[in-house]
Design a protein around this nucleic acid. Structure first.
Lengths: 311, 311
DNA sequence: CAATCAATGTGAGTTAAACTCACAGAACAG
DNA sequence: CTGTTCTGTGAGTTTAACTCACATTGATTG
């Protein structure tokens, strides 16, 4: 957490000077003397053990290192700043705010949400997306959706969707570069996502090829991009079922290797305990629980994928 | 920026005490006395003009307000913390890092990226997504893609994709609720995205119905979700062309009202000046510039959309 | 060229924030 | 009841932040 924070006041002086590219302008902004700024920045540089500014002839120029540092800490200060501003001006919230992981929103919620809209025309929604742990969210929400089960004190949560993973790719790619056994993946581009760092290593291990090196890899920060890349034929992703069942049924994606099918954590809705009496919240959660896809729809698989017992 | 930051040292004491739910534990962690923590938190509360903890009988309990504040400022501190840690341990980067807006990644880059892969099999990519201004990014990148033109000192930028907007919806929704003139939008759900706050007001104004109120609205933090919601038949979004031309051609989406077509800022690639000699960077930028869709493909429009002069 | 200006650097001194210490009060457990 | 643990607070101490005045440097101007 805060175990190795630099001197914060000095950091503040640095941010201003770096942004303004001028110690005296920073001094003006912070209502101190230029000498104070000069010293604070020196202090910070000494603390860090490196130079953040290049100095020449009574002028300073932000170094490359300093610039990289600036763009990062600015975010930190901005967040603190806006958190503080929000604290001072309470905002009224009128619509149901759902905070979902992006992939689940794209591939599970939106395709089915027409049903919710028709059943609840008086409930307006806002969908915000994040992979963050709910305790780390910037904005309040009525319902969050995350992988679970999890430990969320002060919240009520309930699983509503299970998940297991297996390789998915586009039919066109499969036709161009057939995949009949796990070893064939070595000739492919694997699609990786920051949010699921252990997915491929785990699958490859269970498939008996832990040392397999792909021909190439394409990295994404979010999984929904990896899924879209698979649909666009860029490579092979580990795909979640039943979330992608619709794409399998439609033939947009195929599962070339039906085993191993790796069970992973599913999804839970998470609601602040204080919101549990809200009718709209309850309507949405009930709807989530009723969304499970019918079992055993595997017509488009090369072989029949055994779907683990769900009845 | 940093104009209204609370006393940072006090804030740090608050974060520790709130996280640990104990002033004395916070004192231990920060290597000060409990009295110091008590006073710092008092100072912060006075500065803010509100109570962050509920006190009873020599015990403290984080208030609801305090909790909301905690989860937000923790992010800020975490960012500063990890920026500082990164500064101290340089990390080697090996692949071309593209930082794109999510919508452009999903709808323009990924569908075409197979071409880039085939032409450049030795260039591995990482796609990160963000709507932030490039000066506010957490992580370094080789190439950023943002709406432009913009003012990016220290960078080289080049427009590569123009854009204009008009309403898009799914054919199924159009059939269910026909749209023949702008006023008909009043019976529909409009899809809104934080990243394009003025899009609908501007379009409605140009369409001559500035006061139009939709039957409902569905809000998203990101535009790519609004586009997916339109494809899933949840409502009408303002859709960008030529980005969504493929969906129009395929009949996944239709444009019920061909005018007004609103020109908006297009996209530029943005590269740090220091990276301009990199062959991989140049290959990607050149590819971006060659990606323009062929002009005049409007077979799926109810009426022929006049595509502004592009030849 | 010299003079001027604007910028940062720095030592000594001053001020204000941060902190300690010791005592106080409250709640809980045994 | 006593002992323990926790936060609260006034007085005093320490330290970080700051000012002030002078110094240095490079750019600009005449």
């Amino acid at each position: 957490m805060t175990q190795s924070l630099p001197p914060l006041n000095a950091l503040r002086a640095f941010e201003a000077a770096a942004r303004l590219n001028s110690f005296s302008a920073a001094a003006d902004e912070l209502h101190v003397t230029h000498g104070a700024i000069s010293k604070q920045i020196r202090q910070l540089e000494d603390w860090l053990g490196l130079r953040l500014f290049e100095r020449s002839g009574g002028r300073v120029k932000l170094s490359e290192t300093g610039w990289r540092y600036l763009v990062q800490i600015q975010d930190g200060f901005d967040i603190i700043n806006s958190a503080t501003a929000q604290l001072r001006e309470p905002s009224a919230q009128r619509r149901l705010v759902i905070n979902s992981t992006p992939t689940l929103a794209m591939r599970w919620l939106l395709p089915r949400m027409g049903d919710f809209q028709r059943a609840n025309p008086d409930i307006e929604l806002r969908i915000a997306t994040s992979d963050r742990d709910i305790t780390r969210l910037d904005a309040p929400f009525d319902i969050a959706i995350r992988r679970g089960p999890g430990d969320w004190p002060g919240y009520v949560s309930q699983p509503f969707l299970e998940e297991w993973e297996l390789p998915l790719m586009s039919p066109a790619l499969l036709e161009r570069h057939p995949v009949k056994k796990p070893e064939d993946l070595a000739r492919h581009t694997l699609l990786l996502a920051d949010t699921r760092p252990t997915a491929w290593p785990r699958w490859l291990t269970l498939a008996g090829v832990p040392e397999l090196k792909p021909a190439a890899s394409l990295q994404f920060d979010h999984f929904y991009l990896a899924l879209q890349a698979a649909i666009d034929g860029l490579g092979i992703t580990l795909g979640p079922l039943p979330m992608m069942q619709h794409e399998l049924n439609a033939g947009t994606l195929v599962a070339p290797l039906p085993t191993p099918v790796v069970p992973v954590r599913g999804y839970c809705w998470i609601v602040p305990r204080s919101q549990m009496d809200d009718a709209a919240v309850n309507a949405f959660c009930n709807w989530l629980e009723r969304c499970q896809a019918p079992a055993g729809q595997s017509a488009s698989l090369p072989d029949s994928v055994s779907t683990p017992g769900r009845d």
